[in-house]
Design a binder for these strands. Structure first.
Length: 469
RNA sequence: GCUCCGUUCGUCUAUCGGUUAGGACGCCAGGUUUUCAACCUGGAAAGACGAGUUCGAUUCUCGUACGGAGUACCA
């Protein structure tokens, strides 16, 4: 059994969008789960539209998603000579021919065909022409496609797809300037790179039939094909920049965790029974083309959030802190200072199970991140009226010398509430307002523990004396 | 126009001829609670439509509708 080799082959004409990211993920999972190789090839043969910035964005996106590839990034453009070599081989074999028709002629033909309602496939008059009749003019190299019979694509997802060869035209292999066209380049590169499994969007399904023509003309083995359905926007429409088709780095900037993104994306269009929440290791073990669905899926932010929340909850504190720092960077937020980082890390145990995204987590961590005087929000201010401040004034000295543990703090505060004839909830409001300046916070005990005795008492004293001066 | 692909709760999906059509997200109700969450319990919610094959179709076949892709000297 030959080793599995998959590849992700984006064209660098923009950011790495969510559909591309999922395609990359599927290829990565497929290879990594089978001890195979996962390669990255940038399809930059379209010089006019390819940009280095886009290549960088793709690399960055894959890095964030943790999709590591084997070997170097391959530039398709760099391999133009090899593509031309294959085209020439096809030419000498008689499997391709030079076509001198101009674009104007082709366009005229197509317009006439459209008007007549007949096939718009261009039938080059040069297909069977005698070389002695060749003019001294630029030409493209076209594949001499079969005109009868059918091409069958054995697709792992779509099943056997049959296309009549009469519906395939003689596609261009080499442009008139001698540069290769995508259809040729993919086939040559996939073959040369030893790609065994081509997992890509089903917008390439029809193309596969054409590409198979090149494989058979060259006598090359076909890869296993798996054409996966596209992802649609939340409204069911095709993804566009306006809705949903954000670059993956924007998802990072929105604060979704990478593991959750992988989990969610894997689950979009692929399933393994009823499993919804799983680790990378499980995904690698389970992933296969048999679990891939045939219909397009819509992107659902709510479910993404939920999955990310579950991953946050099981991520260890150090790793989580690190990812949060990367998030702040990508979102353009200032880095946390040492005190904030330390407090945040100490607070993660009581935050990570209740935050779906990093902005949400950071918001709940507000009490730990503020330094200096606590700013009291309006909603919390009512918990610091004269009566409440009086309570805090009485309470604070009693906390001065207790041992700063959860058990001890609970005991002291509960006793205090009881002695003063109030329910604990009555006491919690002022404490929350004093410690965090907000009405909604984590547990007061968690906050006191995370902040420590000095900072906690300091904030309590500040709140108690508020409005006194 | 032509060719190809798809269609199960609002969404992601399970089901490989026989199920009260299952799960998850979301939603609704209740519970728990120290606020907000989280969490627990319960609930509403689906086979596009029409034929055919079959003892029996969500499942197989065909048609219709709707959606998508391809049809470039783009990728």
């Amino acid at each position: 059994m030959t080793a599995v080799v998959t590849r992700f082959a984006p064209s660098p004409t923009g950011y790495l969008h969510i559909g591309g990211a999922r395609t990359a993920l599927f290829n990565w999972l497929y290879a990594r789960g089978r001890g195979g190789k996962f390669l990255l090839r940038i399809e930059d043969t379209d010089r006019a539209r390819s940009t280095p910035e886009a290549s960088a964005a793709i690399l960055k996106g894959m890095d964030w998603l943790g999709l590591d590839f084997d070997g170097e990034v391959i530039s398709q453009f760099d391999r133009a000579d090899r593509h031309a070599e294959v085209a020439n081989e096809l030419l000498s074999k008689g499997a391709a021919y030079k076509c001198f028709s101009t674009q104007d002629e082709i366009e005229t033909f197509r317009e006439a065909a459209r008007a007549a309602g007949t096939s718009t496939h261009f039938q080059s008059p040069w297909r069977g022409a005698d070389p002695s009749s060749y003019p001294d003019a630029p030409y493209v190299v076209r594949l001499k496609s079969a005109t009868t019979g059918e091409t069958v694509i054995h697709d792992e997802v779509q099943g056997d797809v049959r296309i009549k060869n009469e519906n395939l035209d003689d596609m261009v292999l080499l442009r008139s300037d001698g540069t290769p066209v995508y259809m040729l380049a993919v086939v040559v590169d996939d073959h040369d790179m030893g790609v065994t499994h081509v997992i890509r969007g089903d917008d390439h399904l029809n193309n596969a039939a054409r590409q198979i023509g090149i494989y058979s003309a060259m006598g090359w083995d076909l890869p296993v094909y798996a054409h996966i359905p596209l992802i649609h926007g939340p409204d069911g429409k095709k993804l566009s920049k306006r809705h949903g088709a954000l670059g993956v780095e924007e998802y990072q900037a929105m604060g979704y965790c990478s593991a959750g993104m992988r989990n969610y994306l894997a689950r979009l269009g692929w399933s393994h029974g009823d499993d919804e929440f799983f680790s990378d290791a499980q995904a690698k073990e389970w992933f296969g083309t048999d679990g891939i669905g045939k219909s397009p899926a819509r992107f659902d932010f709510k479910k993404l959030e939920n999955i990310c929340g579950q991953h946050n909850a099981v991520t260890d504190d150090a790793a989580l802190l690190h990812e949060i720092q990367l998030y702040r960077q990508s979102a353009g937020l200032p880095a946390l200072n040492d005190v904030q980082s330390q407090r945040l890390k100490a607070a993660l145990y009581c935050l990570k199970e209740r935050a779906k995204t990093f902005p949400e987590l950071l918001d709940k961590a507000h009490f730990a991140l503020i330094e200096g005087p606590v700013d009291v929000e309006d909603k919390a201010a009512k918990h610091l009226d004269t009566v409440s401040r009086g309570i805090l004034r009485t309470l604070t000295p009693q906390l001065q010398n207790v041992s700063w543990t959860r058990d001890e703090l609970e005991a002291v505060l509960n006793r205090f509430a009881e002695e003063n004839g109030m329910k604990f909830g009555k006491l919690a409001g002022p404490l929350r307002a004093a410690l965090a300046g907000r009405a909604a916070t984590p547990s007061v005990f968690d906050m006191m523990l995370v902040l420590g005795r000095d900072v906690s008492l300091d904030r309590l004293n500040q709140a108690a004396s508020k409005g006194d001066s």
